[in-house]
Design a protein around this nucleic acid. Sequence first.
DNA 1: CTGAAAGCGCTTACAG
DNA 2: CTGAAAGCGCTTACAG
Lengths: 354, 354
Amino acid sequence: MKKNMTITEIAREAGVSKSTVSRVLNNKSDVLPGTKERVLHVIQEHQFQPNAYARSMSQRRSRTIGIVVPHDIDYVFQNQYYMEIQRGVLKAAYKREYYALMICCRDMKEAFDAVLQKRVDGLLVISPLYEHTPYIDELIESKVPIVLIGKAPAAQPAYQVCIDNFKGATLAMEHLFSLGHRNIAFINGPHFLPSSEERRRAYLTGMARHGMQVLPGMVREGYNSIDSGYQLANSILEEFPEVTALFVASDYMAIGVLDAIHDRGMKIPQDISVVGFDNIQMSQQVAPSLTTVSQQIETKGRLSVNLLMDLIENCETPEEHVVEVEAQLVVRDSTARVREGAKEPAWKTRHIPL
Amino acid sequence: MKKNMTITEIAREAGVSKSTVSRVLNNKSDVLPGTKERVLHVIQEHQFQPNAYARSMSQRRSRTIGIVVPHDIDYVFQNQYYMEIQRGVLKAAYKREYYALMICCRDMKEAFDAVLQKRVDGLLVISPLYEHTPYIDELIESKVPIVLIGKAPAAQPAYQVCIDNFKGATLAMEHLFSLGHRNIAFINGPHFLPSSEERRRAYLTGMARHGMQVLPGMVREGYNSIDSGYQLANSILEEFPEVTALFVASDYMAIGVLDAIHDRGMKIPQDISVVGFDNIQMSQQVAPSLTTVSQQIETKGRLSVNLLMDLIENCETPEEHVVEVEAQLVVRDSTARVREGAKEPAWKTRHIPL
DNA sequence: CTGAAAGCGCTTACAG
DNA sequence: CTGAAAGCGCTTACAG
């Protein structure tokens, strides 16, 4: 492996100019076959690869995208959601011969730096929160190619790849209703996540559609951690023993819910049904395996790369700003028909058609 | 966010030369405080950041390291071991203001490319297999700064950060022996992993030390997947019903083992004890939580970055090639005293002192 | 079809 | 302490 070859030496050895070597390297059409042959031969012989950064400089693009995750490294690398996204992103990027740079930063500062330093041609922002709105707006305003994965909190129209959270959550609720459940509690994700609002609306709408009144304690807010799911499930079941099903807005929390129910000596799904959201890997490895709403995480990652590269390469901006991936219900072992003789809730009063 | 500032424009506005701006940017000592002040002010005002690649080119270093994982993206991003490593690596790299580029490639080709293209200043190779020996040797020979995480398969001395697998596996075995277990089966990792050999030796040595004969079927080889653990445990328990404990060379397989035992209607740890290896996150989330040998994965990631940067920056090469991280036994809920009346194995014949 | 020259945005000796 | 010039290794018009 000879390391310090440059285009100049290749040119000398092949008896041509640097320009010609460059043309061969970039597969330009106007090179005489014989010349091309000769140059390629020298290149092969030395295992020559052009300096990527010199190239980036003169081409004014780096063929590198930034995957920005506005969270702590510790959090990100312990969360399967981000792993799935990264998987989809890296696979798609490799396929188009792009590199991807992981940028974890709470305040998006490093993302700005990477752009200003011309390290990346564009940005993929995963799960931005409301608090990131000003940063994202500034990036959009500066014409930085940028695609958001997950609901956009930006004030101006942002390119984004997401699912319809309302539809997804409705799938979960209808599944539970179809199994005869009526006393359904809801554990939502944190309010600072744009997706939480829609899922909440779906829960409330579903309950209303089936004539169920929702008491305040039936809806809780967790932090998407296993532990918060555990705590909240205990608290809910304490207060509402007649609950027969829980809809939980993230798989991690749902897994905590499974634990809590188990520790209370109840059986899943015989006594209580649980539906999660996300369909992370772990959801099929737990016992019982978790019925959940798939976000098609890897697909989102893949599509977002494609969209971002269209923005980078074509410069023309697609009309449609939103790419929607379909949310899908994945039925596994954590849901079943409502238990016999489940108490009718005292507050079930009337059927409200919507 | 103004994007197209260059050092030249900063120089003009500050009324100095590019050289001086460069000196300020790089914190060189010999700049008059007043001048420095003035330049910094203009820089701040424009939020100027120097072009990273131009810098890399003239400095002949990129402040970027390659994390090469010689496996498929799909495999890597579904494996918590690699996530933990990445976590440690990224945190340490950020701290020293380095970037890290993820390079997944079965045959290490992309790793060579990254070096030849001068994209990275050095390489971190995670879990190299025997089959990667020639590639790694070539890199070492070419004086590319390189550190291996995990036992080195290289023919020549390679810098590496690893645990003492023999010692770690011995901790697991002694733990089981101390609980009274004698009929211990062993599920090893694949033979193409350098670590497997040592763990196997530890198992055999432990058994011998306690006078236990090891029948052929008591040692199996899996692929470090949950599924292979499941299959192998079933097969072992079928053949050797008197087994009271399994030592499993990776947590993923051990989790499969837990499932298998559960599905056979036996209780853990009352009927059978299980010890894993790695201490991935999941090992504490399963039920029962898994007793295992911690590799201190994140620590390995962190230390390997530090070692690699010493190689890159100091050019002087440390004498000691091996950094050893201590393997630690983590006792959780999957191990307990051997069950009462467990059958003494027919083949227990004599005590062989070693 | 090919080459010489200029340029990308920095840093680094070399003078002064 | 500061500036002019050369150089890092490419690409890209511009001629021919």
